[in-house]
């Protein structure tokens, strides 16, 4: 009965994707690893959302939970994931299979391991089209060629006969993108799509995603650790740390008026190539916490210069600091006198 339940937000409209209080854990022989711990994310139609965080912050696991592609020892412990109002956590495996690729497409960091090495590019693309769109072999083939030219792969007809290993990294990522987009999904999840690529190729792929987004109106979720990529691409940004969202807001909020010490720290630890004067970098001291034994209070407190007593004792909720701008830090508590 839950399957038909419609989640409604304040404006009474159904969100494209609404992740609500999601908790995902991995159960290892050492104990439970709370990879995603109470994460809520909203995505509207034609919106670009960036999820930024370091390795182990839970950004990929959040999206793998949405796709229900977690490894065997991973499980969604609680929370809900509404896609157009329907809770994906209640979907059967068969329902998920029909949804994956058709309504939500995903591209991964390493296109070599996500393409099947023993089938040609054409084979893999047409299989997907036949399956989800129900076209005949020949129509599917035409469609595949058309998709390859959409992602600007030169001589697409010849490429159809090639195997993944015959293509370069940039080309493989284009093929993955073509595959993810060929059913016109409502959401495209791109998990570090450019991390393995050179800067010039990275720029090509990001431009391609921008272009495809403006042409098809697909919503994009971009997972990355590179603040530079986010700045040029995303409308909204979520910053994750140790399995939680520590700050979320518009791109301008995050880059110009960050309110969480971790976000501020991240921004200060990357040099801006436009600056002429050399400034010493300000690193964040220490290392991220062990998620097997997460701290009771704020996970960032041991590394934070502004940590107070309460930070060690209690977890800060996401305080609203502006319109659509939230920061999970007690420094933003409404009862606190205006802070820096």
């Amino acid at each position: 009965m839950n399957r038909g339940k419609i989640s409604v937000n304040q404006k009474n409209s159904v969100k494209l994707l609404e992740i609500s209080c999601l908790k995902t854990s991995f159960f290892t022989h050492l104990g439970e690893v709370k990879a995603v711990d109470d994460v809520s994310i909203c995505l509207d139609e034609s919106e670009t959302l960036g999820i930024v965080g370091e390795s182990g912050s839970g950004k990929s696991v959040t999206m793998l939970s949405v796709m229900r592609l977690l490894s065997d020892n991973g499980r969604i412990v609680s929370g809900a994931i509404y896609f157009r109002g329907r809770d994906l956590t209640k979907f059967s495996e068969g329902e998920m299979e029909r949804l994956r690729g058709k309504q939500i497409g995903m591209i991964f960091q390493d296109p070599m391991t996500s393409l099947n090495p023993v089938f040609t590019i054409g084979n893999q693309l047409t299989e997907m089209i036949v399956r989800h769109l129900g076209l005949g072999k020949k129509d599917a083939r035409d469609r595949a060629v058309e998709m390859l030219s959409t992602v600007m792969i030169p001589s697409p007809v010849q490429r159809m006969k090639q195997f993944p290993h015959e293509l370069s990294g940039g080309m493989r990522q284009r093929v993955m993108t073509a595959m993810a987009l060929c059913c016109h999904p409502d959401i495209l999840i791109a998990d570090e799509p450019t991390t393995a690529l050179d800067v010039t190729i990275q720029a090509q792929i990001i431009d391609l995603l921008k272009d495809l987004k403006s042409r098809t109106g697909t919503s994009v979720i971009l997972i990355t650790h590179d603040l530079g990529v986010v700045a040029g691409f995303c409308d909204k940004v979520c910053v994750m740390y140790a399995g939680r969202i520590v700050e979320s807001g518009s791109s301008a909020d995050i880059f110009y008026t960050p309110r969480h010490p971790y976000t501020k720290g991240l921004l200060k630890s990357v040099p801006n190539p436009k600056k002429m004067m050399k400034e010493r970098l300000v690193p964040i001291k220490g290392v991220p916490p062990d998620l097997l034994k997460p701290p009771v209070g704020c996970a960032f407190a041991p590394r934070c210069d502004h940590a107070m007593k309460i930070c060690i004792l209690r977890r800060p909720p996401l305080f609203e600091v502006g319109d659509g701008h939230g920061a999970g830090c007690f420094l933003n508590h409404p009862d606190l006198p205006a802070s820096a």
Binding site: V199, Q202, A203, I206, G228, A231, Y256, N272, P273, K274
Partner: peptide
Amino acid sequence: LLSAIPIPDPIEA
């Protein structure tokens, strides 16, 4: 190569 560097600043980008 230099123009391809992602700049961590939305307006400049």
